[in-house]
């Protein structure tokens, strides 16, 4: 772990988080008005040729203001043992839903918060494109949606990077066929995250971790499999989110969030 990075002094490891392979807690840089630590997240390495486009995306992303999305503070590139590409963000106490333990109601509330974060991004002109349990964050029981940092490292013509085939669970066929992320594809991914959080099962089981090409080809043609024992109104909501026709999915992520909140108190 580097002891310093730009104006940050590293405090210790952070996470686990969904984006990036490494994350650290760091003291705020000199001169900032807050004493709260920040999180430094290492992103997928970005080449010199794509760095300007990546940084332009990050600059735009910094303008998004939402109570359900961490705020992007800085971005940069390092050398030596420093992260090759990194961002800093707030909400240092947030943890991924993939590692957080909670009951069903708590999970629904957290997922509702993440859906509101997705809606805020949509209204700000962003589709997240990487919603999964690892990017749904829990901060003091409140749900957040982590920053869509993979957008920044997936510069066209790249659509997605399959780091782990289980990541494909929340990728609808439109995206795998080359379309960009949309409201509908984010809602699909939220449906997959709800399914995974409440059942523990993926929609596309048995994808080989060492065969990403085969995994993509399978997901392109397979119908997502909802766990047979998963029933009730939540399961129906998941089915709505996964509808092959994007027009038949919930009309917005905010609408989905309202339904999740209702189910959490039912």
């Amino acid at each position: 772990m580097p002891t310093r990075l730009a104006e940050y002094r590293m405090v210790g490891p952070a996470g686990p988080f969904g984006n990036g392979s490494r994350a650290w807690l760091a003291e705020p840089p000199l001169g900032t008005t807050s004493d709260s630590p920040v999180v430094i997240v290492e992103l997928d390495a970005v080449g010199d040729d794509t760095w300007p486009a990546t940084q332009a995306l990050l600059h735009e992303l910094a303008s998004v203001s939402s109570a359900h999305v961490p705020r992007l503070l800085e971005s940069g590139r390092g050398e030596g043992n420093e992260p090759a590409t990194w961002i800093s963000r707030d909400r240092p106490a947030a943890r991924s839903l993939a590692t957080a333990v909670g009951d069903r109601r708590a999970a629904l509330r957290v997922l509702a918060g993440a859906a509101r974060g997705a809606h805020d991004l949509h209204e700000a002109g962003w589709a997240h494109g990487d919603i999964r349990l690892a990017t749904v964050l829990v901060d003091a029981g409140e749900g957040l949606l982590d920053l869509p940092t993979r957008l920044a490292s997936t510069v066209p013509p790249a659509v997605i990077q399959v780091v782990d085939p289980s990541d494909l669970d929340g990728v609808d066929s439109d995206r795998l066929w080359g379309a960009g992320p949309t409201r509908a594809s984010d809602i699909y991914a939220l449906g997959a995250a709800i399914h995974r959080a409440l059942t523990g099962a993926p929609l596309h089981p048995d994808l080989a971790a060492d065969q990403p090409v085969t995994a993509v080809q399978r997901v392109l043609v397979e119908v997502p499999r909802i766990t047979p024992t998963f029933g009730g109104p939540v399961a129906q909501l998941v089915r709505d989110c996964l509808d092959p026709d994007p027009a038949r999915r919930p009309p917005s992520a905010a609408h989905l969030a309202d339904q999740l909140d209702d189910l959490a108190v039912a």
Partner: peptide, 9 residues
């Protein structure tokens, strides 16, 4: 800021 995304569907 960007304009909002097109509606679902």
């Amino acid at each position: 800021s960007r304009p909002p995304l097109p509606p679902v569907g």
